[in-house]
């Protein structure tokens, strides 16, 4: 289901990119880049926290930061000029990422190692989608 959703999002974004010209493509790519960067940062932080490589305070602060950045990007998305459907899909993707980051932050805050390990293992790899951006901007 998740794969199909991602594939349809990919298709939509690629069509938008193909039709909407460079500026729309770059705007979409920019939002995608922010989402991927912070989702993967959150995963990285989670993995390093489980491995004991980073202090709790840093992990919590960075996950908070990820959440803030994703929220700010969601707000920016609403102001950007792009087709409504693309905006809706990107918005959903950003919110889904934000929800996962928030869950991870709560698990780290509660020192729940099992949940953090599960979230790091099971959350979809965001950078798989970033291939869209590379294709779009080639």
């Amino acid at each position: 289901m998740r794969t199909r959703w991602r594939a349809s999002t990919a298709g939509l974004i690629l069509s938008v990119v193909a039709c909407a010209g460079k500026s729309a493509a770059e705007r979409i790519a920019e939002h995608d880049r922010v989402r991927v960067a912070w989702e993967e940062t959150a995963r990285f932080v989670g993995a390093e926290w489980i491995g004991g490589a980073i202090p709790d305070a840093y992990a919590t602060r960075t996950l908070d930061r990820a959440n803030e950045e994703l929220r700010a990007d969601s707000e920016k998305l609403q102001k950007d000029d792009m087709p409504d459907e693309a905006r809706a899909r990107l918005g959903e993707a950003l919110e889904a990422t934000r929800a996962r980051v928030d869950t991870l932050r709560l698990a780290v805050g509660a020192s729940d190692r099992a949940s953090v390990a599960r979230l790091v293992r099971d959350s979809p790899r965001a950078n798989a989608d970033s291939l869209l951006r590379q294709v779009a901007l080639r």
Binding site: V36, F44, I54, R125, S130
Partner: peptide
């Protein structure tokens, strides 16, 4: 390889 772009200093620390 992780698809992480550096947007803030917090990330570089990793």
């Amino acid at each position: 390889p992780r698809g992480i772009r550096i947007e803030r200093f917090d990330q570089i620390a990793l």
